[in-house]
Design a protein around this nucleic acid. Structure first.
Lengths: 133, 133
DNA sequence: ATATTATTGCAAATTATTTGCAATAATATT
DNA sequence: AATATTATTGCAAATAATTTGCAATAATAT
């Protein structure tokens, strides 16, 4: 919470109740949330406001886009802890992998392709414990 | 082309001129294409037909979804050659990395999380040669 | 306590995708 | 080779996701 307010203030934004509620909803969500997901929980906040808020939060680096390819946009709190996700192709169960496999490849890619990597996204699709049987 | 016709026939689908044209457009495209991208090039084919064709092609594994997160759906021919992409955050330039960094991690993930990985998608975002200066 | 202006809610617009249906064209059947 | 069958197409309309204009409201600055 301290962190949220600090970042809001740094960017000269207003600490509205809508922004607080949306931030807290994202904070407590285990899985990335779409604008519509949030609207279902916070029915009193207009959907357009939720979209605008998510864009704002993304711009100031409070949250990040984190959806599976082809899916609607979903966002999650930007943590210092980098993670990846696995989604079960059968039941949709999604879990987080709480460490990063990729960092070590960044230097290699810089040498070979001249690209300086700023971010990456790694998504796995598979079958979970239950569904693989 | 042989491959395309073979797969179409295997699935008892009809080899229409629209499907041929869309397939060939994707085949010669270096970068994943959206329905609208294709429609711009093949103006005589209805946009709804393009959407339906892409879904059909995806279902029979001729093509695969390959867009950057948050972007509209983009598809590319499914090659035996697995690849990843890097997109420049500044100019949008996109290049392909023609080998896979991830395969070796799959066994590890199976052991630790019980997930059997079927597919993955790795996207890098960074700055290209020109833009990093 | 009041003035200023960012933010909100609402309605309408835009963009991406999907669907129903009659016309058309590809394949199967004779 | 001609005809029958039915998948596929184009068109129009529907739905879904997101964006935008604008007046009302609420947060912050004065």
């Amino acid at each position: 919470m301290k962190e949220y307010l600090q970042i809001i203030k740094e960017h000269h934004l207003r600490n509205t109740s809508q922004r607080q509620d949306i931030y807290h909803h994202l904070k407590k969500s285990k899985i990335p949330q779409s604008a519509f997901d949030i609207h279902k929980k916070l029915k009193n906040i207009d959907l357009a406001t939720i979209h605008r808020t998510l864009k704002t939060f993304e711009k100031i680096n409070l949250i990040e886009l984190n959806n599976f390819i082809g899916d609607v946009k979903k966002y999650s709190i930007k943590t210092k802890i980098h993670f990846h996700t696995i989604k079960c192709k059968n039941c949709g169960k999604t879990i987080l992998i709480d460490f990063c496999l990729i960092d070590k490849f960044q230097k290699f890619i810089y040498k070979k392709y001249g690209f300086k990597i700023l971010e990456h996204q790694l998504q796995f699709f598979g079958l979970c414990n239950n569904c693989k049987k």
